[in-house]
Computed example of a mutant assay.
Amino acid sequence: MTSITRNLPPFVKDLGVSIVGKKCYISLVENLNVGDIDCVKYAISKGLGIGIVVGGSVMKVPQMLLILNAGSAEGLSLPAYILETLSYAITLAYSVKNQFPFSTYGENLFLTIQDILITLLIIAFAPSKKPASSNKPRDLTVALLSMAGIAYTLNSLPISTLALAQIATLPLSLFSKVPQIAQNAKAKSTGQLSAVAVLAQILGCVARLFTTATEVKDPVVFTAFALALVLNSVLGVQMWMYWDAKPAAPVAAKHKKDEDEGEEIVSPQLREEAKASAYAYEGLGYGVPSSQQRFGTPPRSFSPVAGSPVAGQRRWARKTVD
């Protein structure tokens, strides 16, 4: 068997050496020495790292699709995603400055980009209380300019300052999950939160703990991933607890439904006036009008007599609700 593994095509050998290094490639591939524990752990770590990077490139795609398909970001916490995006961006800048292997942090690049897109989607699909004077274009512009400014600042900071910022990702990781956890607990629902994305984050944190301990051995980074694992696990438990709960209908959709059904909330005063109008019909010999007559425009032949309780103060409604 070793005669085959020692004569693999050059492109296979070059790829293997680039992943696990020449020493471990010779030990594990060419000599088939599976007893080399250090190289086995290193190879597993590299494999997990590559898998995490590939998975991270699409991890948040299900979340984006959920928002787009539903036309709503109901249940998603904007502060949570802002803080999470900042945390990913700091870790990315810190790892690049320290020239860590790309397999140990590569997913942060893709997760940062995806979190930026989700943040913009949350702003774009946020319920607007005043549609006529919506400030969404302004909010999106401010968000984009802020993100560009943060990216430029992180790229300009020296390593010593980025090290302090990396320590700050510990509380950032905490506070980025707490708003979402609190919102889920309050609503008793996870809204449009993606179960696939949450599960992928849990598995990613577990794998990252192994790769960090094996390759980087940075206690700050390790602690950050450990804390992220705990908080993502809490979100996972909430997904299980509130699995059957349905998110509340978006405010804009509710308003549209009311308009389609022709419903109109009428004040008690108008309701009483409508009743008085019905009594006026009956008193003048017209009989009790139908529902269409009662709440529509009165017939032309009808003219309230002077002194009538409704003379000079006709107010009509399409429908009354109790």
Rank of each mutant, 00 (worst) to 15 (best):
residue 8 L to S: 15
residue 10 P to M: 00
residue 11 F to H: 15
residue 13 K to S: 12
residue 30 E to Q: 13
residue 31 N to T: 05
residue 31 N to I: 00
residue 34 V to C: 02
residue 35 G to A: 01
residue 39 C to I: 07
residue 39 C to R: 07
residue 39 C to N: 00
residue 39 C to T: 02
residue 46 K to D: 07
residue 47 G to Q: 07
residue 47 G to I: 04
residue 49 G to I: 07
residue 63 Q to V: 04
residue 64 M to W: 09
residue 64 M to C: 08
residue 67 I to R: 05
residue 68 L to Q: 11
residue 75 G to C: 01
residue 79 P to S: 05
residue 85 T to E: 08
residue 87 S to I: 00
residue 91 T to H: 04
residue 91 T to L: 15
residue 92 L to T: 09
residue 96 V to A: 14
residue 106 G to L: 05
residue 109 L to A: 12
residue 114 Q to P: 02
residue 114 Q to W: 10
residue 114 Q to A: 15
residue 115 D to P: 00
residue 118 I to Q: 10
residue 119 T to V: 02
residue 120 L to C: 09
residue 124 A to G: 10
residue 128 S to W: 00
residue 129 K to L: 06
residue 131 P to L: 09
residue 137 P to K: 01
residue 137 P to T: 02
residue 140 L to T: 07
residue 140 L to G: 02
residue 142 V to D: 06
residue 142 V to K: 10
residue 144 L to R: 01
residue 148 A to V: 11
residue 149 G to H: 04
residue 149 G to A: 03
residue 155 N to W: 11
residue 161 T to Y: 03
residue 163 A to L: 04
residue 168 A to N: 06
residue 175 F to V: 09
residue 178 V to H: 04
residue 178 V to T: 13
residue 179 P to K: 09
residue 185 A to K: 10
residue 191 G to L: 10
residue 193 L to H: 00
residue 195 A to M: 12
residue 196 V to C: 03
residue 203 L to H: 11
residue 204 G to M: 01
residue 205 C to N: 06
residue 205 C to M: 03
residue 207 A to M: 13
residue 207 A to R: 01
residue 207 A to C: 14
residue 210 F to M: 07
residue 211 T to G: 08
residue 214 T to I: 04
residue 220 V to W: 06
residue 220 V to K: 11
residue 221 V to W: 04
residue 222 F to A: 05
residue 225 F to Y: 13
residue 227 L to H: 04
residue 235 L to D: 05
residue 236 G to Y: 01
residue 241 M to T: 13
residue 241 M to Q: 08
residue 243 W to S: 09
residue 247 P to M: 03
residue 249 A to S: 10
residue 250 P to T: 05
residue 255 H to R: 11
residue 256 K to P: 02
residue 256 K to I: 03
residue 259 E to A: 15
residue 260 D to V: 15
residue 263 E to A: 15
residue 264 E to Q: 15
residue 268 P to V: 04
residue 270 L to W: 14
residue 270 L to Y: 12
residue 272 E to D: 14
residue 274 A to M: 12
residue 275 K to R: 14
residue 275 K to E: 14
residue 278 A to G: 12
residue 282 E to K: 07
residue 282 E to T: 06
residue 283 G to C: 10
residue 284 L to P: 08
residue 285 G to Y: 02
residue 287 G to D: 06
residue 289 P to E: 06
residue 291 S to V: 13
residue 298 P to F: 05
residue 300 R to I: 15
residue 307 G to C: 00
residue 307 G to Q: 01
residue 312 G to A: 15
residue 316 W to P: 02
residue 317 A to R: 01
residue 321 V to S: 06
